[in-house]
Write a protein that binds this DNA or RNA. Structure first.
Ligand SMILES: [Mg+2]
Length: 613
DNA sequence: GCGGATCAC
DNA sequence: TATGGTGATCCGC
């Protein structure tokens, strides 16, 4: 329900246009070098951050006038570029530190850890789920053409890159094949797709994920590629829009594949371990959703350009990156990703922000705040939200962004209240920095009171009771020790905890003599609060649906991390293994959320099956 | 929790 | 003339 977006508002015009070309890039680069006397490399990196690099491939016709204006701005040393360079400098500094650490690590013989990580990878590869056929459909290139004229005016009003993009893409945009509104078009597309997978998930305005495994089972004469062909054909018949598609065993790979044959083709990656390995080995890391400009450059500077190289370096990645990123990259390097599509989405925040000409006058700033609070309150009302955190966002005339948050005890939604809290924050910002001038202000409401939770929780509990699965939930649990990998059967978590602590004590000796300092191991093993929750949840015969709601929305999540069904592993993580009471397969989870997510999905599947039969 | 950085679209 | 808006996650503190 939440998911039905207003496409007219959400359409991202700027991003749909590729406004890069080699000449433009080189001109800008030259100018920067001339005036700033910077090295080629620095300039490259700045432009790279700005997405002005030529390696992306772009348009045929470039508006030279506009490009010259960019150059003008650059040579003037605009605040925008100054800020970009500043951030780039910080990033470069960070990379330098990482490189140092990397070189140090390379000097060591990490045989012990290497062995562990290789075992881990083997294990993950063995458990790779190749049973699902995931399709990602991407219509971004053709949706541009359906942009209506009013929206293009907005593009003109928006800032310069958008304006350039618009200019560059003008020919394309000005010849819409037909004038259907987005939501009409998208409704038709959804109708087509839902007959292949009622559980499809619109990932953004012009992207859809679906799972055709069931359809293939029921229609044995089809092949994955044939089904996809048919879907694209039907979409075209109904809307006259072309679509590109990717077919693969998981979401991450499907998305990559759909990008390979734009705008009117499809790419299939077979559900075969060797095929996946081969594919991933040469895959440039930047193609992966979740790896952006910064991470790409960071990895590149470490000599890692492909997922294959990433895999070779995971041993170092583990030390150089933080746990979540390591986990994400580990999955990426093996081509492992989510295989279950979840179309549930729960909003966590709602916000409004506006750019304007620089303002330093206090009263004017408060006026802006007032405007924005009205707009936010309006949006909040539409969705019946109540939140207790208000965040004020400001962008200085120098493009520095700052956010300040204030959480109050009451849940609020009215404009006056939002304004009041926002004003309090703005007061302190002004006091802190009296004459600062700003070019943007935003307000965000979060920490919602969610009334829907109780309803869906009731539903779940009922169904569980009916199916008599509560008893199963209460059965003796199996955990895998993260240190010795033995499976331990226990009644209570603290028994397991004892075992792991024991193991850790044994490992510590090896660690200290043989390997690097490792804070993770020096820490006393302790089950976190969330796992204690799990115990409580079982006692109360309830599943905490509030933490089990997985969602997938707008591609904003990493497509392989914290997955509902994919296994989370780490050499030294405190993940535990147990048997899912519904699907009976063993699952790993280091947090209660992951466990709940898995159970949630399984329950969903069961419910669906029941409805179908 | 908060605030900065990153990411996707 | 001129460099957007919305929602989310991770990480250090
Ligand atoms: Mg990427």
């Amino acid at each position: 329900m939440n998911y039905d977006m207003n496409y007219d508002n959400n359409y991202d015009e700027i991003n749909e246009c590729e406004n890069e070309e080699k000449d433009e890039y080189n001109n800008v680069k030259e100018k920067i070098n001339e005036n700033e006397n910077k090295t080629d490399k620095v300039t490259d990196n700045v432009l790279y951050r700005l997405s002005l690099n030529p390696n992306k491939g772009g348009l045929q016709n470039v508006d030279k006038d506009k490009v010259n204006k960019i150059i003008y701005e650059v040579s003037k040393g605009s605040a925008f570029f100054k800020n970009a360079k500043e951030r780039e400098k910080i990033h470069t500094e960070r990379i330098k530190e990482m490189k140092k650490k990397y070189i140090e690590l390379k000097k060591r013989t990490l045989d012990y850890e290497k062995q562990k990580i290789e075992n881990l990878m083997k294990k993950m590869e063995n458990e790779r789920d190749l049973s699902q056929y995931i399709v990602h459909i991407d219509m971004s290139k053709s949706m541009i053409s359906t942009a209506n004229y009013e929206e293009r005016k907005y593009g003109v009003r928006s800032a310069m890159p958008g304006y350039i993009a618009l200019k560059l893409c003008k020919d394309l945009i000005l010849v819409p094949p037909r004038h259907k509104k987005y939501h009409e078009v998208s409704l038709e597309i959804r109708k087509v797709i839902s007959s292949y997978d009622p559980n499809y998930c619109p990932a953004s305005v012009d992207e859809v994920f679906l799972n055709i495994t069931n359809f293939l089972e029921k229609n044995p004469l089809y092949t994955p590629s044939k089904v996809t062909e048919e879907i694209r054909q039907k979409i075209f018949e109904k809307t006259k829009l072309t679509a590109s598609a990717g077919i693969a065993p998981n979401l991450m790979l499907a998305k990559i594949c759909s990008d390979m044959n734009k705008p009117n083709g499809q790419t299939e990656l077979k559900n075969d371990a060797n095929e996946v390995e081969k594919f991933v080995k040469l895959l440039p890391i930047g193609k992966v959703s979740g790896i952006g400009k910064v991470t790409e450059r960071t990895l590149n500077e470490l000599g890692i350009k492909t997922c294959g190289e990433l895999k070779e370096n995971m041993i170092y990645i583990r030390e150089l990156f933080k746990p979540a990123t390591y986990q994400f990259l580990l999955n990426v390097s093996l081509g492992i990703g989510k295989t279950i599509i979840n179309n549930k989405w729960e909003r966590k925040s709602i916000s409004v922000e506006r750019t304007f000409s620089n303002i330093s006058d206090e009263q004017e700033l408060y006026n802006k705040l007032l405007d924005i609070s009205f707009k936010l309150a309006q949006d909040v009302e539409k969705e019946n939200l109540k939140g207790k955190s208000v965040t004020l966002k400001l962008k200085t005339s120098g493009f520095e962004i700052l956010t300040r948050c204030l959480t109050i005890s009451k849940f609020i939604h009215k404009q006056e209240d939002i304004y009041k809290v926002g004003k309090k924050i703005l007061d302190s910002c002004i006091e802190e920095n009296p004459n600062q001038s700003y070019r943007l202000m935003g307000l965000r409401l979060s920490s919602f009171l969610d009334s829907k939770k109780n309803i869906s929780l009731d539903k779940f509990v009922k169904i569980i009771d009916n199916k008599n699965t509560v008893d199963i939930l209460a059965q003796k649990k199996e955990y895998e020790c993260p240190v010795c990998y033995k499976v331990i059967r226990v009644d209570y978590l603290n028994e397991f905890e004892k075992h792991v602590n024991n193991c850790l004590n044994n490992v510590e000796d090896i660690k200290q003599s043989e390997f690097i300092e490792n804070k993770k191991y020096n820490k006393k093993f302790k089950l976190n609060d969330k796992e204690s929750d799990y115990k409580q949840i079982i006692k109360n015969d309830k599943i905490d649906n509030t933490t089990s709601e997985d969602y997938y929305h707008k591609g904003k999540q990493r497509l392989n991390n914290k997955s509902n069904n994919q296994i989370k592993h780490d050499v030294s993580s405190t993940s535990s293994k147990l048997i899912c009471p519904i699907c009976k397969s063993s699952i790993f989870c280091s947090t209660n959320e992951e466990l709940n997510r898995h159970i949630d999905i399984c329950l969903n599947n069961d419910i669906i099956k029941n409805y179908e039969t």
